[in-house]
Simulated scan of single mutants.
Amino acid sequence: MAPFQGFGDKAIAFLKALDFHQNREWFLENRDIFEKHLKEPLGDLVEELTERFAKAGLPFKGDRVKSLFRIKRDTRFSRDKAPYNRHLSALLSVSGSKWDESGCFYVCIGLPGVRDCYAGVAWWSPRPALLAAMRQSIVDEPERFRAMVAALKKNGLTFSDHDRLKRNPRGFETVNGPDLVAAIRNRHFVVRMEIDPAEITDPALADRLFDFAMRARPLID
Rank of each mutant, 00 (worst) to 15 (best):
E25D: 12
A204H: 10
R164V: 14
R31T: 02
A17T: 10
N30V: 07
L152R: 04
K98Y: 02
R31Q: 15
R146P: 01
P178D: 15
R115K: 14
S102N: 15
H37S: 15
S160V: 04
I195C: 03
A17P: 00
I109N: 06
R208M: 11
G113W: 09
E194T: 08
E40V: 14
N155Q: 12
N186D: 14
E40H: 10
L45S: 05
L49F: 04
A151K: 12
L28C: 06
R76H: 11
S125N: 10
E29A: 14
K39E: 11
F60K: 04
I71K: 10
R31M: 07
S97M: 07
R208Y: 06
E194V: 04
K81M: 06
P169Y: 12
H37W: 06
R187E: 05
S102C: 10
V175Q: 05
K16C: 03
A54K: 12
A119F: 02
L111Q: 05
T201Y: 02
D196P: 00
R146F: 06
R144K: 13
L68F: 04
L209V: 09
P142Y: 06
M193K: 13
D19L: 11
E173W: 00
L205R: 02
K153I: 06
A82H: 01
A147G: 14
R76W: 00
D44M: 11
S95E: 07
R70M: 11
P59A: 09
L88W: 01
V175T: 07
R76N: 06
R144E: 12
S93C: 01
D207E: 15
V114S: 15
L49V: 02
P59S: 09
